[in-house]
């Protein structure tokens, strides 16, 4: 039996550091996006952090637009975006586009992918796609209580190692794991934790070569682009939205923001 009192005293677990700001999102320092498959508890995590009472339902596809809220942790103010739940970021339905466009163009400082621990394999499909777009991501391994009830065990450390990003087990409905999640968000946005995300290895040699070839050209045209490989994949797949973004130069919006941050880092 763990002594709960000792946990409460530990700085990692200090829930007092969390200040729920509801819809007050002025002067935020960081942007956090919540992504995940439908019905994994994204809205529950959202309500937990912001103190808002968004209607949650045991119901896939409940959130079709994005909701926003704010919270403060360790003296940093965060804006939290609850994205619509999607199975992938590839297809063309409106909800998937909202989610993808935000991760791509909205450039959140960290993307928390809420994952259903009882259906890890299918949820990982989305995680891997998110990792193609952004470096800074955290897996929130939610519904651990349900996984426990079904005798499913997950080796979180192995998962962290394989994905190259932090994995935080939670039971959001019972508020379990939320302090740890906040601490991890803090570590990633402040650069204490560096993510080295897993990248998809193509099974087809022709495709792999083509991606490398094209990514090289994209990097030349848009120096500093963090996800040239992913842009290359989308161009090869004939994704009209991305083709347009390359043509108009909109895709380099990503570059600008990253460049600014690097400048700050060097100062």
């Amino acid at each position: 039996m763990i002594d709960q009192n000792k946990c409460e005293a530990c700085p990692v677990h200090n829930a007092g550091n969390l200040k729920r700001l509801g819809i007050n999102m002025d002067k935020f320092d960081f942007v956090v996006a919540l992504a995940g498959n439908p019905n994994t508890g994204k809205s529950t995590v959202f309500n937990n952090l912001t103190g808002l009472k968004q209607h949650t339902g045991n119901w896939p596809g409940k959130t079709v637009t994005r909701a926003e809220g704010g919270f403060e942790f360790n003296k940093n103010r965060y804006k939290l975006i609850d994205l619509p739940g999607t199975y992938s970021l590839l297809s063309t339905s409106t909800d998937e586009e909202i989610a993808r466009d935000f991760i791509l163009f909205g450039q959140p400082d960290v993307t928390v992918v809420v994952v259903d621990a009882t259906r890890l394999e299918r949820n990982l499909n989305l995680v891997l796609q998110v990792l193609e777009i952004t470096d800074r991501a955290i897996v929130c391994l939610n519904l651990m209580d349900e996984a426990g009830r079904r005798n499913i065990e997950i080796d979180e450390r192995a998962l962290t190692r394989d994905l190259g990003i932090p994995v935080v087990p939670t039971e959001a409905r019972q508020d379990v794991g939320i302090p740890e999640l906040l601490k991890t968000v803090d570590d990633v946005v402040t650069g204490k934790l560096i993510c080295k995300p897993y990248r998809i290895t193509g099974s087809s040699k022709g495709l792999t070569k083509a991606v490398e070839n094209l990514a090289e050209k994209i990097k030349n045209e848009f120096p500093g682009l963090p996800n040239a490989r992913w842009v290359a994949l989308r161009l090869l797949d004939g994704d009209q939205k991305i083709i347009d973004a390359v043509r108009s130069g909109e895709i380099s919006g990503i570059v600008k923001r990253n460049a600014i941050e690097e400048n700050f880092a060097t100062v």
């Binding site: 394999e121 299918r122 990982l124 891997l128 499913i152 080796d155 192995a158 897993y198 998809i200 099974s203």
Partner: peptide, 18 residues
């Protein structure tokens, strides 16, 4: 296919169902 294969590979490694 690559996404699914990789996801399955990782999941098989870390998930254990008693």
């Amino acid at each position: 296919e690559s996404i699914y294969t990789d996801a399955a590979k990782i999941a098989n490694k870390v998930v254990r169902i008693k």
